[in-house]
């Protein structure tokens, strides 16, 4: 059907869907009148039983740690998918780094950007490590700290050039770091099995409330997740950057491109 017909059909269907949802949402409690029992139970129990003051991290990595393991592997699979899809195809090869959109060489970055990048990168990396390490005490944790750490690496690219990133890491190192992070989470889960408790049980000593080295396995899991998310995101960014800045079509297209008539 043409796009105009589709638009009209959607407007009708969308109005019907919205009406159905509004009728359904009418049965929810009013905004601010949260009634459910589990939130209150977790808030009351998390600090005395697990010595974790950030209840969201406790839910993520202790009470429901198994679900977060699944989410982490979704992330792993998505990064794997991007690295596979954007790999160098038979009809492409590395060219020099140039601004593909305009065809000229990448202009050198201005001094203001360089100074800003130089000044901002160390605090960002430090802040990222702080957020990961204190995930069980204050808002933060492996997911947030990992993304902030990837942003710190991105600042280096923004202040310099793409080649500067090659001096910092190789892709093999990133892949190994990501795999170690993902595997460590599962390995910490098996610690519980080794000591006779269930999988992913919090079996290390719980320590004192409010200290960095407390809450058993949760800081270790935070470190593993932070490592994996940071390495995965940097790998993602490097794949996109290499695809945009470096890979160019070579003279002969590959067999798949020919088959699709491209």
């Amino acid at each position: 059907m043409t796009i105009q017909v589709r638009r009209i059909v959607f407007l009708l269907a969308g109005a019907f869907l919205a009406a159905l949802l509004v009728w359904g949402m009418g049965g929810l409690p009013h905004f601010g009148a949260y009634r459910g029992p589990y939130g209150d139970v977790l808030n009351a129990v998390s600090v005395p039983e697990r010595h974790i003051t950030d209840v969201v991290t406790a839910v993520n990595f202790d009470f429901r740690g198994f679900d977060t393991l699944g989410e982490e592997f979704i992330f792993f699979a998505a990064v794997l998918g991007v690295a596979l899809i954007l790999r160098a195809q038979p009809g492409e090869g590395p060219g020099h780094v140039e601004d593909y959109a305009t065809g000229r060489a990448v202009p050198p970055t201005s001094d203001a950007v360089r100074v800003l990048g130089l000044g901002l990168t160390p605090p960002t990396v430090l802040f990222a490590i702080y957020v990961v390490a204190h995930g069980h005490l204050t808002p933060g944790g492996g997911f947030q700290g990992g993304v902030i750490l990837a942003t710190g690496v991105l600042l280096i690219y923004l202040a310099g050039e793409f080649d500067d990133l090659h001096g910092l890491y190789t892709e093999v190192t990133l892949e190994r770091a990501e795999a170690i992070g993902a595997g460590a989470y599962a390995a910490i889960g098996t610690l519980g099995l080794l000591t006779g408790a269930t999988f992913m049980a919090n079996v290390l000593p719980l320590g004192k409330i409010g200290h960095v080295f407390s809450a058993g396995t949760v800081p270790l899991i935070n470190l593993a997740v932070g490592l994996e998310i940071a390495a995965g995101l940097v790998l993602l960014l490097t794949t996109f950057l290499r695809q945009t800045l470096v890979l160019r079509p070579t003279a002969s297209p590959g067999p798949l491109t020919k088959a699709l008539g491209g």
């Binding site: 601004d99 593909y100 959109a101 305009t102 993304v147 995101l233 996109f240 945009t244």
Partner: peptide
């Protein structure tokens, strides 16, 4: 930060 960067990189690839 991360999402707009990826969109911009894909756009640059496609525009070129």
């Amino acid at each position: 930060v991360a999402l707009p960067l990826m969109i911009l990189l894909s756009l640059a690839k496609v525009r070129g």
